[in-house]
Each structure stands twice: as C-alpha cells, then as structure tokens.
C-alpha cells in the first residue's frame, strides 16, 4: 500500500487525473448504469476513442517539444483522402483477386502521406525556425487546400468491402482498432522513456538553447518528432476511413479543440518538456466517458462545446495555480541579487 502512495505521490498530475477519472466513472455508473457500461457500450466507446486517440497523441508529442500542431486534423484528412482514392477503384480497378494488395497499398499511401505532412511541418519548424503555431497554421490551410483541390470537396467512397472489417473485428473482447491504439501508445511511451531520442525530446522541450549548446542535434530531434506525428496522423486516417468507409476533406474538424483539450488535461505543458503518455491515456478515457454520457443525456453539439471549452479553461487555470504554488509567482522572474539585497535591507 505504501508503494502505491509513493508511486502516486511522485506524479501529482497522475494522481489527480486518476482520482477525477475514477470519481467521474463511478458517478456516471450510478446515473446511467448498464446503459453506458455494458460490453457493447464499452466496445463502441473504445472504437470511438481509437480514431481520436492517435490525433491526441500526435498533439501531445508536439507539445512535448514546445510546439503545437494545428494541422493534425487537416493532415489526417489529406492522408485519408489519398488512401480513399487508392481504394476507390478510380485509378486502379478493383477485382476480388487484388483486393488485399489494394488494401495494403491504401494503408501504405495513408502512412506515407501522413509521414510527408509531418516531415514538411518538421522541416519548416526546424530548418526555417518558423514558430510551430504559425507553421502548422499555414500547413493546415495548405493540406486542406490540396485535399479540396484533389476531391473538389466531395466525399470519396471506398470500394473494398473487407477493409471495413478493420473497424468491426475484435481481438477477444477488444476491438481491433483499440488494440492498435493501445500498441501505439505503448510503443510511443517506450520511445519517450527508454530511448536516447526520448530523453532529447523532453530536454528540448525543457530548454531549447541549452540542448543546442550541449551538442545535441536539436533540429534533427524536431524533424524526427514531427515525422512520428505524421505517422500517427496516417494511422488516424486509416482508422477514420475504415470506420466511415468514405472520406472527405473537413472530416472531424471538432477534433482539433478536443485534441488540445485532452493533452492539456493530461498535464502536458504547452511550453514543452512535460507530459506522460500514460496520463494522456487516462485523460482520453475520461474525455470519452464524458462525451458518451453527454450523448446519452442528449446534449446538443453546442452544449458539448461549452463543456469542452469550460473544462479547457478550468484545467489550464487550475494548472497555473497548482504549478506556481502561489499565483503570479511564475510570471515574475526571481528578483536579481541586487534587488534581493535591497529588499533585505528595507526589511530591517
């Protein structure tokens, strides 16, 4: 028992988050009971969380290196459109024989497009020193633009029936896509905590200038991070098209606010260097449970938006007070030595 407390005490964000999540789940269980927490309900929740989870993880990685990625949803849209075009039979006719190859090709196209979008972001941020917000704002419009220009804004339907099985099949009780998400979270978590690269990611977020002076090739770290973000975006696109069986530009625009929300909720610092993948996973569970129960209570999308926006501001405000200890302490730099001496003298 002592060990548990020691573990919880080490990470305050985790303990608060875990406590809140458990409390919310218990309260909602008492209110909604089996409507929410049946096997079917849990499965549909875990499928929903899968398509969004990849985007949230991508946003989290961007925040670890003191950035933000406004282009995740647009990039997922573009990757999805490219993959959907591959699997629509428009360019390559689909026969029952080559269906498997087409699916593999579609997945490769989605991942490659995602990777390329990430690399472009990384290049603009690392090599041209454009602030991440602006760089990804620009590429967000660009990726949307490319997608719209290719599709004229219309929806592309998939013509490979077996691809949809990805979204419906299960491994034991767990949906396939959820297992994918779980595996991705574990891999990214291992990369961040167990590899040199992961250390460098955190160091860069903590102090970019110091990292450069300690001989780490910081630009390469940024490029790599955004490349991983790109692959995650490609994975999100695969899940989205498997679920919807079609793709259009502009799909899931509300995910952008939610992705930022869940990452901040998980205790990631938008200034970089702080945040754990495990916490992000718990925050995702919390968000999904709230979201599903709002649907069960028949909340309108606007009411949902109020809740998301309100939680976002509340959590950020709370973090500010918790981190700073006392309000305002964070903003003012510690008084310089002379000021401190003067203060000391005036006190006497």
């Amino acid at each position: 028992m002592n060990k548990v407390f020691k573990f919880l005490g080490r990470d305050r964000d985790l303990s608060i988050l875990g406590f809140v999540t458990t409390a919310v789940i218990v309260v909602l269980y008492l209110m909604l009971g089996s409507r929410l927490f049946s096997i079917g309900g849990l499965q549909s929740m875990s499928i929903q969380v899968s398509e969004f989870g990849f985007l949230a993880l991508a946003m989290g990685l961007a925040m670890l290196v003191a950035g933000i990625d406004l282009s995740v949803v647009a990039a997922a849209g573009l990757s999805g459109v490219m993959a959907a075009l591959t699997m629509s039979g428009e360019f390559i006719p689909i026969t029952p024989e080559n269906e498997t190859q087409i699916i593999i090709l579609g997945v490769v196209v989605a991942l490659t497009t995602g990777l390329l979008t990430g690399l472009l972001n990384g290049f603009i941020i690392a090599k041209l020193s454009v602030p991440p917000i602006l760089a990804t704002l620009g590429t967000m419009i660009l990726y949307t633009g490319i997608g719209t220009a290719i599709t004229s804004g219309s929806s592309i339907s998939l013509k490979v029936p077996s691809f949809a099985k990805l979204a419906t099949s299960t491994v034991g009780p767990l949906p396939m896509v959820f297992v994918m998400l779980l595996a991705t979270f574990i891999i990214v978590s291992l990369i961040l905590t167990r590899t040199r690269f992961g250390r460098k990611v955190y160091l860069f977020g903590e102090n970019e200038v110091a990292v450069r002076f300690s001989g780490i090739k910081s630009e390469r770290v940024i490029l790599m991070t955004y490349a991983i973000i790109g692959i995650l975006v490609g994975l999100a696109a695969i899940v989205i098209i498997a679920r919807a069986n079609s793709m259009r530009v502009g799909f899931g625009e509300s995910y952008l606010l939610q992705a930022i929300l869940v990452v901040v909720l998980a205790g990631f610092n938008p200034l970089g260097g702080k945040g754990r993948v495990l916490n992000l996973g718990i925050a995702l569970v919390l968000l999904q449970v709230i979201s599903t129960s709002m649907t069960a209570f028949a909340f309108s999308p606007y009411a949902k938006n109020i809740v998301w926006g309100g939680i976002l501001i509340a959590v950020m405000g709370m973090n500010h007070y918790l981190r700073a200890g006392a309000p305002r302490a964070r903003r003012q730099e510690p008084p310089s030595e002379t000021v401190a001496i003067a203060l000391e003298q005036s006190r006497r």
Partner: peptide, 27 residues
C-alpha cells in the same frame, strides 16, 4: 481577464472561450 489572471496561452484560452461563447449563445 481570463488570459491575465490565469496566465494562459492566449491561443488555448480563446479556443476555450470561443466554444463557450458560441455554445452559450445557441443554447
């Protein structure tokens, strides 16, 4: 007021208030 007293990133704060303002109006 929110940006000043919570010392929030302006992007994140206004992202939140935008959905609160618009949602509250519709409701």
């Amino acid at each position: 007021v929110i940006i000043h007293f919570f010392q929030l990133s302006t992007l994140i704060a206004t992202l939140g208030t935008a959905s609160v303002f618009h949602g509250a109006m519709v409701i």
